[in-house]
Nucleic acid binder design. Sequence first.
RNA 1: GACCCCGUAGCUCAGUCGGAUAGAGCAACAGCCUUCUAAGCUGUGGGUCGGAGGUUCGAAUCCUCCCGGGGUCGCCA
Length: 510
Amino acid sequence: IATTVAMSLAKKLKRNPIEIAEAIARTIDVPGDVVAGVDAVKPGFINFRLAPPVLRATVREVLSQGDRYGACSDGAGRRVQVEYVSANPTGPLVIVSARAAAVGNAILNLLDFSGYGTEGEYYVNDYGKQVEALGESFRFRLKERLGRVESGETIENYQYPGGYLTALAAEVDEHDASAWVAPAVPAADLGRRAADRLLATIRRDLGAYGARFDAFFGESSLHPAAVEDAKRRLVAGGHTYEQDGALFFRSTDFGDDKDRVIQKSDGEPTYFLADVAYHASKLDRGFSRAIGLLGPDHHGHVPRMQAAMAALGAPADWLEIIIVGWVRLLEDGKPVSMSKRAGEFITMHDLMEDVGVDVAKYFFLMRRANSPLDFDLTLARKQSDENPVYYVQYAHARIASVVRFAEERGGAARADADLAKLVAPEERLLMLHLLHFPGVVAGAAEAREPHRLTTYAQELATAFHQFYHACRIVGDDPELSAARLDLARATRTVLKNSLQLLGVSAPSSM
RNA sequence: GACCCCGUAGCUCAGUCGGAUAGAGCAACAGCCUUCUAAGCUGUGGGUCGGAGGUUCGAAUCCUCCCGGGGUCGCCA
């Protein structure tokens, strides 16, 4: 632990910073079981060297707290909602949703671990024109299935040409299909049927991916009452005006760069107003914070949404938006075509089958969420040392193996090992990493930056591998073996906790 | 044109509410398995932190301008 006070004071005191540091270091009185020494160093730092008992206590603490080590009660039970993925149910989930799912879920885990009451939610856009468009596309596929396509009509005339609707149509029995293609059946009805099925697939994939959702909130449930109510609240607050027959929300009063239409001149509410109603419901549901993950094409929506929440009386910073950056898939160093033409995009499901859930999540969580990401499929497929996931998982498996080996020799269970035996530099460094874990978790939770955990996990794995290489764990000296085994088990616990927060499995063998 | 994100080693990226010699993985090269998992470890080379100013005792980090890449700007969703 270091402090820079001496350098900050240098100007005020008109003295050389190193002199100040030395003076402080000489005077300062610290408990010897916590701080082994205080040193004034080069430009003017004052360093406090941790005493070995602190590190030993860390190992004990990890072992006694187990899967709760690193948890804290900062959140004090406050309820926080994380809304993520929320992709329209007009097709299967694609790669950027897989990224959002990994990030959102990890944030949920981090907040949970930090003592918040968390809720994961998926906002389902099951209302409006896109549902009708989906219905029309679906109707065409049903006609195809029945051999009743009119001449000159092709899928190119429709908005959703993906092959998944063909597959859906194939699942419908012939009797229903005949009934549904009739022009009298509203496109919206067909769209809802297709959306329901697609949503079921989405939910299944998210489940397999390990992303937690406590609620699926349908936009349709907001119409018309909640949407009307949102409008009333904005009008009552004096935040609206009429122009050209449309109703505008004066979002510029709250920092937006232009005012936004909430009701079109034909009387219909805009998508934005429905979104306001949705967020109002989050406010009404009593969340102390609402965190929302949005795709990079939606970052323009942030100011108007923030403005709306301010107009509705939400506390400042109540709504936090995290922009999840683009994902570009690379194969053999070249970008994979992501065109939406039928069959050409790679789905989240494809990705899970291709590289596995652990690898996919880990790759997404290695980078900070808002930066564009190149996902190297060729690297992700490799089950080798080139793939960073395995580096961390391997450390965990290695410890499990050593512990098994020790148990077979009958010398594993030792709660009273003399940790004072742990004096090697590699042992000390490893214990320091264990000590840092709770701080890393708290920082990652507060900043909503799960990628800090992948960095940490890799550093911890490195510290363990170095320790493993330098120090024989199960050896001739039973006291030393017991101490090192405890250190190894504590490391295993922290690796496991890290991986669990990331939503990645911690294998016992590889 | 306005606004947002990004620019750090050959590649992919950490580090960014100012602090010590800017780190990791991969790639390259050289070593380490009769002993607990070599998916590991050790070492070497590799940097105008996009550029220029400014603030500061101190700048990859803060401010201004510029350059380059991506994105968004609808009474669509």
